[in-house]
Amino acid sequence: MEHINEEQVKRRRNLRLLTNRVAQFIFMLSTLFGVIVLGILIYRVVSQGIGWIDINFLTGKLSTEPERAGILGAILGTFWLMVVVVPITMILGVGTALFLEIYIKKGRLQSFLQTNIANLAGVPSIVYGVLGMTIFVRALDLGNIVLAGGLTMSLLILPIVIVASQEAIRSVPQHLSEASYGIGATKWQTIRHIIIPAALPGILTGAILSFSRAIGETAPLVVIGIPALLIPLPGSIFDKFTVLPMQIYYWTLDASLVEEYANLAAATIIVLLLVLFLLNLAAIIIRHKFKKIY
């Protein structure tokens, strides 16, 4: 014990404490980095675009003249795209989740299906675009209409909806389904009357978040060949269309030709972010309102 030089230990301890302090500061700065960048990004976009948002912009058609250009077509396009995506992903997503969680026994097939879904979730969105272009646009000859884009987008977000639904279904306590079976309810009756209602908030939260992914996704639609031309407003899922992110893409690209296009892109980004914000808000509200009671 005599070998320990107290003075030295003290000095070393102070140094260690100082290092800890400095490290903590750096870690905090790193954390702040993301926050600050988000702040800059939003500030940039808003300051550049807010002046361009008015009623004409929101309800006007596409135009080559920046002052007259509007995004109604893109808004409608996004809407119609969701008309395809929402029902398809809900049915396929919840159906697959039910099959994996309730019907199939643990084993090779189940783990194969599960691995497959995990792998699909990691496939880059542009590859889905290539698939959609090849199958829906060309092989099925749908052309670049809402339906083709919607089907592509549905396949893209399906893995996310499945996984979220599985988690929601798994979190329904077993004793509830036991009670239902105990009364003589069949599997499907139990699913319909007990499991789905109890899992619904979780399913919806996950689904809404993946819908916002679909709303902001651009790459697959570029590949499908959504035109940058002036097109009539889409009125059904069989019409040609454009969506908000596509509009942002083309205006950003063309900003080197006409400077104001960058402002239009910024204005469109504001609208897009607002839509996504509202959707996320809805998801948060649902999550809070239906907090687990059992």
Binding site: G216, T218, I248, Y249, T252
Partner: peptide
């Protein structure tokens, strides 16, 4: 935030 916004 959608990647298109990051691109912009």
């Amino acid at each position: 935030i959608p990647s298109i916004v990051y691109g912009f």
